[in-house]
Design a protein around this nucleic acid. Structure first.
Lengths: 139, 139
DNA sequence: CCATATGTAACAGCATCGGTTACAATTGTC
DNA sequence: GACAATTGTAACCGATGCTGTTACATATGG
């Protein structure tokens, strides 16, 4: 199973916020850019708010803005905020412990999966929102 | 969304086959070790057969065995055989192209996601079934 | 011929995702 | 204070995917 599009959508939203640092954006405006419903946007922004990535002002003339500079928001920060971890699942029902493989396969795989998650974390942590904004200019 | 347990189950099955290279294993016996239904096992083995990882003998006294030595079966081979690629999804409906971010965000993210997938591929390709079998002995 | 296997379709139960409607709560402006 | 704009969130829908199960067709060794 692949990941949801939540990371892609969230990154999209945050890039828009990063491009207009002076103004607050409403969920409606962001939904138009992403081409989806504003509730979908608000749900994601609630997670990003809980993770301390965006600031929210409620009420009339309210809206969303980044809680810190784009160079200090990594793609992994976003991933952690909106996706479920861990990336890999082991067995749902525990394997038969009487089998010599069954007795230890979960532990062995958990270690491999941890390494895999680490490599993704390292890679996404190394790329900031600011990097992506700079890439727009370059292209 | 995390991955399914298919990779973990498949690796488990293949480790059992690797441990008994002389004998064929039935889906029923493998299901007992994994602690699930034999149809679940046969479904996975059909994918592994299509990928050229296991050999199948049908009929009475039939069963499954590895199609090549465990040192030449990597965890990535297994992953490719039973999981859907790509790992990451971009937007479902295309973003608004009138927005300067919307116009290019998919392309920028696709490049990041490709790097992430490459790093997972490299890591899993580097670990063979034989390595895991050796790990059993070590533990 | 029969017992034992695999192959696979069909269905159920469950979870998650993305989208939508509806409405409560908050807050700036007049 | 009234009102309009906005966020917060619950509730529901349809689609999809995963795991497990039953059922049955097919193949094959003895």
């Amino acid at each position: 199973m692949s990941f949801s599009s939540r990371h892609a959508i969230s990154t999209h939203i945050l890039m828009v916020l990063a491009c207009c640092p002076e103004t607050k954006a409403s969920s409606d405006m962001l939904a138009t850019s992403v081409n989806t419903n504003s509730v979908v946007i608000r749900r994601l922004l609630a997670k990003l708010r809980d993770a301390g990535i965006v600031k929210v002002q409620k009420g009339a003339d309210g809206g969303y803005s980044l809680a810190r500079v784009p160079s200090h928001i990594s793609l992994w920060d976003i991933f952690e905020a909106v996706e479920e971890l861990p990336l890999f699942n082991v067995h749902q029902s525990p394997p038969n412990p009487c089998c010599s493989v069954g007795a230890c396969v979960e532990r062995l795989l958990a270690s491999v999966y941890e390494e895999a998650e680490d490599s993704i974390r390292a890679l996404l942590s190394d790329k900031s929102l600011q990097d992506l904004v700079n890439d727009i200019a370059k292209s």
